[in-house]
Design a protein around this nucleic acid. Structure first.
Lengths: 217, 217
DNA sequence: TCCACCCATCTTGTCGACAATGAATATACA
DNA sequence: TGTATATTCATTGTCGACAAGATGGGTGGA
């Protein structure tokens, strides 16, 4: 499946942001004609994972640092809304799925498997959104989570261990709030969780890496 | 432009929800090959305006009454969020654009042009979202507004005149709040506006039209 | 008469090739 | 030597035709 493969590779930064996507190269790689390749690219463009310049090819969507504040705003709101809805609409089956994913995250953390953590983290929140039973929110949220996956991989190439550990506890609280159908508590913990991740990424980005700043010249 | 034409016709219910979309017919109509037609359909499918059943054709996305509660929830939230952001981030140019659209709505109302009212209403709110400067919200909101356009046309074929009149005043208040950069007021009026439209559509849908209910048999 | 299977037909999915557009290079002129 | 123009080249957009899959009707058997 060409669409799925490309999407995964974009999110995993195997295809770096801004890099050109060559149709004929993909043709050879997937052993297909250009038609289905282009169809996949159109889909990806619709999701914003790729941008097509008319008559001038398509490139992997760049990560624009200027969009980050808006991204954080939307992400926080979706964290809150989906978690609140999940607390209201969840079924026991939903809860089971969510718990299983949380257990998976704990395992990935214990194994120090950063890739798995990032991926399971996304699925965990997607499952919560699904339990909220609002497709409009789920869709936007999953897009934001995917974009977040790119950001995490991009900025957290050297992963800080304190962050995933905090996630673990906060996820636990989240599940408890959803279990208890406590909307207010779900909202609080979702907000805190969002603040946590936003602050961490911001802190990482604003790190002062000018090693030569105090160089005497 | 085949994509734009199809989109407009879907939103205007020229292509009724659930109706089949014949590729070869579109081929003849637009004088193009099937390839660009299919590309447009893929794009429309990405926006949810059309659903493609694998190997069994594509149909115009049906209006599912079961989705309405979720739709209303998301619409209300986006009304609030975009209006709040507009109050914070608007430029004078934004305000000018918004005012022009509001004037257009007033003209359409005076002319009793329902189609124009529905369309300008959508553009008015889209402009407010644009002034809010958050692409994630704008995109979801515009999708919801488009879907709302279909709903309005679908359920308001006989348009109730009290609704558009209320819109006129509420829009005016909205502009005033955005002008004054008053976030709290913007939030209040956006909420009221959303409640208004939701209640009206709900009332219309739940109208009891069983003319034969008291028929003696 | 009813059901299962098979075949014809239509629609979709895919292909290889051609046309059109834009970029890069070469060329001519000032 | 610098600039403007023409030409070549690569890449995208489009086309008509073929292959694959699905639907409906027809045929044969029980």
């Amino acid at each position: 499946m060409v669409y799925g493969s490309l999407k995964r590779e974009i999110l995993d930064l195997v295809l770096p942001p801004g890099s050109a996507v060559d149709e004929v190269a993909l043709t050879e790689r997937f052993g297909m004609s250009r038609t289905p390749i282009r169809e996949a690219l159109v889909k990806l463009a619709g999701e914003g994972l790729v941008v097509t310049l008319p008559n001038r090819g398509t490139v992997v969507a760049p990560i624009d640092i200027l969009d980050l504040p808006q991204f954080f705003d939307a992400l926080t709101l979706m964290y809150r809304v989906t978690t609140r809805l999940a607390a209201v609409n969840r079924t026991d089956g939903d809860l089971e799925t969510i718990r299983a994913l949380q257990a998976g995250y704990a395992r990935a953390f214990a194994a120090r498997d950063v890739s798995a953590m990032i991926e399971v983290n996304r699925d965990f929140h997607a499952a919560i959104a699904h339990a909220g039973r609002n497709g409009y929110y789920s869709e936007l949220f999953e897009r934001l989570l995917d974009e977040g996956r790119r950001l995490l991989r991009f900025y957290y190439s050297s992963f800080d261990e304190t962050l995933p550990l905090a996630f673990l506890d906060e996820h636990e609280e989240m599940v408890a709030a959803i279990d208890a159908r406590d909307v207010a508590r779900a909202d609080r913990v979702a907000t805190a969780h969002a603040d946590q991740i936003v602050r961490q990424i911001q802190a990482y980005i604003s790190q002062d890496r000018r090693l030569n700043a105090d160089l005497s010249l």
